[in-house]
């Protein structure tokens, strides 16, 4: 059974939802233009807002920030490319001369943004897609796979909560320590995995009982529960495909090109505008469609 259609994005066919999110991922990988990455992040945020999932998407900021910062910090430290030296350091064995360049720093920042854009695009997909429907859409006899995936996905937050609670229980007993050496830290946490496995097995048993008690495995099963392909899906798929084609052409003809090495260069305003425009236009089309959808429904 489908989720309640509160807005256009959530009421789309899983294929349309999948394509919409994947276009952002692909666009992000097509070019190293930082304006493209910023535009993708903003557009993904906008679509999350249209789907009412903005709060949930915002909760991913820590992961994005952490991963993005790693790229931002590591690249300038290890990259020896670039001509504008910001910081000159000593000669290090193996690594050579330790110089931090402006180009490497900018490239690291862009990679951080790209990581954030990809994470957020996948997060958006996670938030808007119903796994049972998605698997059902992909396979004709997809119920079992759909069920497996639904259970796995539903249990992800439960297992995360269980592991946090187990950790808290043993931090509170002084067994799992926070301030200690790395080895001791790891050593104090490994036994907790055993408890997590036991807890997960207990939950799995309970769940299996509940599923069995609700007639799972009966001969025959309602087939018509899959979401239908509606005209809205055609519009969304068309706009998403156009954005993707635009991205491919832009990358092929270097319209969005942005070079970091040996020194930062790009094709002026055209490069910035086209990079911002592609994701923004996709967001704009979703916004217009959402307004029309709401009007039709009311």
């Amino acid at each position: 059974m489908k989720r309640v259609n509160k807005n256009l994005i959530l009421s789309l066919h899983p294929t349309s939802q999948l394509l919409l999110a994947m276009v952002f991922v692909l666009l992000s990988l097509m070019s190293e233009n930082p304006f493209l990455q910023i535009s993708i992040i903003a557009s993904v945020g906008g679509i999350a807002f249209l789907s009412g999932k903005q709060k949930e998407l915002a909760s991913w900021w820590k992961l994005c920030l952490g991963m993005g910062l790693i790229a931002f910090i590591i690249n300038p430290l290890f990259s020896r490319e670039g001509t504008t030296i910001l910081l000159s350091g000593p000669f290090l064995p193996v690594l050579g001369k330790f110089d931090v360049t402006m180009e490497a720093t900018a490239f690291g920042a862009t990679m951080g943004l790209r990581i954030a854009a990809v994470i957020l695009s996948f997060a958006l997909l996670w938030l808007i897609l119903d796994p049972v429907e998605a698997l059902g859409a992909l396979r004709k006899s997809g119920f079992k796979s759909g069920l497996t995936s639904a259970l796995a996905l539903r249990l992800v937050p439960t297992v995360a909560r269980d592991s946090a609670e187990i950790l808290d229980a043993h931090r509170a007993r002084g067994i799992a320590k926070d301030k200690c050496g790395k080895m001791e830290y790891l050593k104090s946490r490994i036994p907790l995995l055993k408890r997590l496995v036991y807890t997960s097995l207990d939950r799995a048993m309970g769940l299996a009982e509940a599923i069995e008690s609700r007639a799972y495995g009966s001969s025959g099963k309602t087939k018509g529960a899959r979401r239908k392909f509606l005209p809205w899906d055609i519009f969304v798929i068309s706009f998403s495909s156009l954005a993707l084609i635009g991205g491919i052409l832009g990358a092929k003809y270097g319209v969005m090109e942005f070079k970091f090495y040996p020194s930062i260069s790009f094709m002026g305003t055209q490069s910035i505008v086209s990079a911002i425009a592609l994701p923004a236009l996709l967001l704009l089309s979703m916004w217009v469609l959402s307004c029309l959808w709401t009007e039709t429904k009311s």
């Binding site: 489908k2 539903r154 309602t222």
Partner: peptide
């Protein structure tokens, strides 16, 4: 927590009904 199969209220209620092969309108 140990008996929910899906993550939304409607799909949870419909799980058993689908197993009974009921028509979608009846569900």
């Amino acid at each position: 927590e140990n008996q929910f199969v899906t993550d939304s209220v409607e799909s949870e209620i419909s799980f058993g009904l689908q197993n009974l092969s009921l028509e979608e309108s009846l569900i």
